[in-house]
């Protein structure tokens, strides 16, 4: 049966996040022959974003532009999203499992009295069923879920479902929808940007993470340099956060973020089970640790037994050289 799926795109700093394109690919998996409608919200410049959604596989797109949609607020975005859903009456909804996605989608699901399958890493269609795979117990196990009643509604984890190829010869209608956004009860007074260069941990392709072995705040500098040459982000174990070497927002693990980058470089991290829960599904894991018995070596693809303060700068240099020569 062909269906209609609405995909909520997410614009950050004027650009669509990559996970929005992944969400379109996810919608296409659910809905091979049906229609995919992209939707983006904001206060300006949405036309371009709408076209990008179409280049990446949406059949048409809807924009909702309003001064109150400049920054994400659950109430403002929920009003816009519900207006689109009321118009379109879709069979399914897909969005990225990002801060905004986690905040917005349960609210919408509650309003629509629908189910919601969060943090999906894989989608397959078997017969009439769309089967969603998602990690549970912080990636120590996985479950497969299906929708038994109502909307097919899912959020997808960044970095797991590959986007379709961009094709700028694709075209489709872009409709600007007027929505009167009002009665917002949560007022954003200020946003303090703490993340540098916009490489978000959950979306980063490369993560360089430090543990207690990093020893100090300054100890994170060589890790940041390595992350920079790789276009990646810096993360940390709970030990490093508890010791105040870095902010809790960097923590990876069972409490903290769960990440699945292409490359995870663990520096001075012993590999407690709680930390492994947050990163062991990364595609390639490199461990650098002085202790040859460290548990992290049991999950790593490649290991170097050595002092991270010696190894990491050399690694940075070597990769720099490689990039220059490439």
């Amino acid at each position: 049966m062909s269906k209609k799926i609405v995909v909520f795109g997410e614009v950050r700093d004027g650009e669509l996040r990559n996970v929005s394109f992944e969400a379109i690919a996810a919608a296409r998996k659910i809905n091979e022959d049906g229609e995919i409608v992209g939707a983006v919200f904001g206060n300006e410049g949405l036309e371009e974003a709408a076209k990008e959604l179409i280049y990446y596989g949406a059949d048409r797109a809807i924009t909702v532009q309003h001064d109150s949609l400049k920054n994400y607020t659950s109430e403002g975005y929920a009003q816009a999203a519900l207006a689109v859903i009321n118009d379109e009456n879709p069979d399914g909804i897909v969005m990225g499992h990002t801060a905004a996605g986690k905040d917005l989608t349960p609210k919408i699901a509650s309003k629509l009295e629908s189910g919601l399958i969060s943090d999906v890493t894989e989608i397959e269609v078997t017969g009439d069923n769309v089967v969603f795979t998602r990690p549970i117990y912080s990636g120590k196990a996985f479950e497969k879920k299906i929708v038994t009643d109502g909307l097919i509604f899912a959020t997808i984890r960044p970095n797991n479902i590959a986007p379709l190829n961009r094709d700028d010869s694709r075209s489709g209608d872009v409709t600007a929808k007027e929505v009167d956004i009002k009665d917002i009860r949560t007022v954003i007074k200020d946003i303090l940007r703490k993340t540098s260069e916009g490489v978000d941990l959950s979306e980063a392709k490369v993560i360089v993470a430090g543990g207690r072995g990093v020893k100090s705040k300054e100890g994170f500098e060589p890790l940041q340099e390595l992350a920079d040459v790789l276009g990646g982000a810096v993360g940390a174990s709970r030990g490093a956060c508890d010791a105040d070497y870095c902010d809790y927002s960097l923590q990876i693990g069972q409490t903290g973020k769960v990440v699945t980058p292409d490359l995870y470089i663990a520096c001075g991290i012993s590999g407690a089970i709680q930390h492994l829960a947050g990163m062991s599904n990364s595609k390639i894991i490199v461990a650098i640790n002085k202790d040859p018995e460290a548990n992290i070596f049991n999950v790593s693809d490649y290991g170097i037994v050595g002092d991270l303060f010696e190894v990491v700068p050399k690694l940075t240099e070597e990769i720099k050289n490689l990039k220059v020569n490439a």
Partner: peptide, 30 residues
């Protein structure tokens, strides 16, 4: 009554222990 249902639970594939590099640090990095 729930709107969704779990039909399977499984463990991720066991990761084989990786390769520990050997030799001088410079060579290992290389």
């Amino acid at each position: 009554e729930p709107k969704t249902k779990t039909i399977d639970v499984f463990l991720p594939p066991e990761k084989e222990a990786g390769k520990i590099l050997e030799g001088e640090i410079d060579d290992q990095v290389n």
